[in-house]
Design a protein around this nucleic acid. Structure first.
Lengths: 253, 253
DNA sequence: CAGTGGTCTAGACCACCTA
DNA sequence: AGGTGGTCTAGACCACTGT
């Protein structure tokens, strides 16, 4: 016999999967469900808790539980290595969102920090070495959608405009290029995991929302890493897309 | 005042993050934690439940809670569009795992199904049209690591060896090419979400494990989609890597 | 058999928001 | 003021596994 809380979870999971309960629809209250299934409220809570942690429903107190609504923005890592339209007054993200008729905004913060082990490895500096971190949170219509923390070895960018927490429309890649560190190659790594508490806070994530973590490490022609950007993408708000063509023998590092 | 269950979660989250509790280490029992924090067992369970759903710990009854251990295999979508070493007797996955000194295995199942909406769209067939689905679960040392469900329009592959649930060392892409449907371009899409119950079952996933879903849609030179493979990658077992080079103007569809 | 986590009951009080 | 979900207590019984 399946436990009651699982039966409750399965019942509502099925109704959501079948479309009987569409996005945004409200579920009965915990009391009502408890009565229907002949259990106490705590058991209902366990069952709905499963669905919350699966990301299928959200609790909005004091309104009740609602079927979650998804909307995913296009995320194309390959766009990063194409030239920007020269007349553009906005960075790629802002341009894309504006084109869709929505309002982009950004919060920027610059700091000097000791490189965490994962970044030290990718930037090929010693663990604990000082790096410049340019933290950005991007918003659409005021809602946070992703985090982009770019890291640079300190010597490369000190005294450049990268150190100022201001908007750089042409992008930091261009600034690096002007400084003599033009990137020619990048390695993209994607990890999937549950968010840490500070990521939940910065992105306003609901429970049950996993994130994709995208490391973009850029190399110059002589194979020095000059920047590593950590993008944290909430799973419910992104669709990562890239394209391949068949080739004979291009090396993969 | 923070709720007790959150304080408990935070306490152990910190100890795990700091490395004080390394991978595989056992936590105190629920009773012991309850005593330490002066709360009842149910409250401890709520706290540890948070960490379980964050994927930080696992419960192994009747042994206790343990800090989760991670091991990630390399997943490189771009490898798919490179020629296979002609002397290879194994597919790419099996070769990679063998090279690492581990034992690959696979479960294969072929069926005719009605195309789900997401696949119908990608294969450009009508929703509900019959497609061939070649379901595979891949194992390393007997442990399931990912799901690969390849979908083909029925007319393209009927009477070919793709219809047989047997191992095809050279890969289905080669079979398609032999049938006159050589792929020249592919679109990769990655979504991040929590797994559905049947994915949890097939992959033996623990609670709190998100998945990356990778759609690989292959097109011929005349831009017809000939296959769409849905790869379900447990977040705790994969690291997705690809590479970019700067180019002037290659079109992205 | 002892000890673990898994499930469940029957209550209670709280914070928060809307009406 | 009333109803929502959020938290917590104090118990109880169960299934599973190793000794």
């Amino acid at each position: 016999m399946e436990p009651a809380y699982r039966r409750i979870a399965a019942a509502y999971r099925d109704r959501i999967a079948s479309g009987e309960l569409g996005p945004g629809v409200r579920l009965p209250t915990e009391h009502e469900i408890a009565e229907q299934f002949g259990v106490v409220r705590q058991t209902v809570r366990s069952g709905l808790g499963v669905l919350v942690s699966e990301g299928l429903i959200v609790a909005r107190r004091p309104h009740g539980y609602f079927v979650r609504e998804w909307e995913r923005m296009l995320y194309r890592p390959q766009e990063k290595s194409r030239p920007m339209p020269s007349r553009s007054t906005m960075d790629r993200f802002s341009q894309q969102i504006s084109d869709e008729g929505r309002v982009p905004s950004m919060h920027i913060e610059v700091a000097l920090v000791q490189a965490a082990p994962d970044l030290a490895e990718r930037l090929r500096v010693e663990a604990g070495a000082t790096v410049v971190i340019r933290r950005r949170v991007r918003f659409i219509n005021g809602e946070p959608v992703n985090i982009n923390d770019s890291h640079f070895p300190l010597e490369l960018v000190k005294d450049s405009e990268i150190m100022s927490p201001a908007y750089i429309p042409r992008g930091t890649d261009e600034v690096l290029a002007d400084l003599g560190h033009r990137q020619e190659r990048a390695v993209d790594e994607i990890f999937v995991r549950m968010p840490a508490p500070d990521e939940i806070r910065r992105l306003g994530l609901g429970p049950g929302t996993p994130v994709a973590v995208h490391y973009d490490t850029g190399y110059t022609a002589d194979d020095r890493p000059v920047q590593c950007t950590v993008n944290v993408l909430p799973g419910d708000r992104h669709r990562i897309v890239f394209e391949r063509r068949w080739r004979a023998d291009e090396p993969l590092s």
